[in-house]
Amino acid sequence: MIKKDSISKTEILSTSCKSEKININSTLIRTFLLDIAYVTLFLTKVLKTMFSSNFEFKEFLRQCYKIGYKSLPLLSVTGLILGLVLTIQSRPILIDFGAVSLLPSMVATSVIREMGPMITALICAGKIGSGMGAELGSMKVSEQIDAMEVSSTNPINFLVVTRVVAATLMIPLLVFYADAFSMLGSWLGSNIKGDISFVLFSSQAFSHITFLDFLPAIIKSFFFGSVIGLVGCYKGYNAGRGTASVGVAANSAVVVSSLLVIIVDLIAVQITDLIVL
């Protein structure tokens, strides 16, 4: 009798655990599907507004300045260190293989094809994505977006479209800028234990670089920019009420946009691989 009771209790417990698990899973799936629906609606709204409303050129220029110009110091340092580190790390291995003369072109290829766009995009996801999430989130919380709507201004057009377009156009330029600083860093790195002029370094670096190395990197940089802009704006624009939601919006903007940048990169690499083959 006691044994029977204990068995039935265990069964009940396991059944309730299972039902809880199912509930949690169904809630997660529901939230995920709702998120996708909201993102799709937001994206549709942004695209519709982009092609139907007057473009806010002044606000777009302000965003270009904020996204582009204000990111230059950070990307200068990051790019320089990236090139420096890549060179310092690769040099001993290439010496072992007797291929130290290939160091500039190896660094250039890896920076232009992958490291430059990726590092720039991830840094921008952190700096620009979180900035957009926090700014729009606080505007939402403090009713500034509502105030804009009351002033007969479409907030999607004024706030979102300008930021997304600015991010889409600025990120590729920032990638170029970071690439240049990486090459400068690489040259400095080469000169720590060696002696190579900048002209020779440059000619060696770009001797193996073709247009096909640049093109996929530029194309995917546009996508990185639009992903960062869209995610940052979506998270901020749909922030909840209260100041805590501003932090949540900024944080999730960084997390989601960084993740999406990596996914986009994976897809871009696969497509490039297919096309080149």
């Binding site: 606080s138 505007m139 403090s142 009713e143 500034q144 509502d146 105030a147 804009m148 009351v150």
Partner: peptide, 12 residues
């Protein structure tokens, strides 16, 4: 219609 928001809603 003029609308005065609870928080003022001035653009930061």
């Amino acid at each position: 219609i003029g609308f005065l928001f609870q928080s003022g809603a001035l653009y930061d």
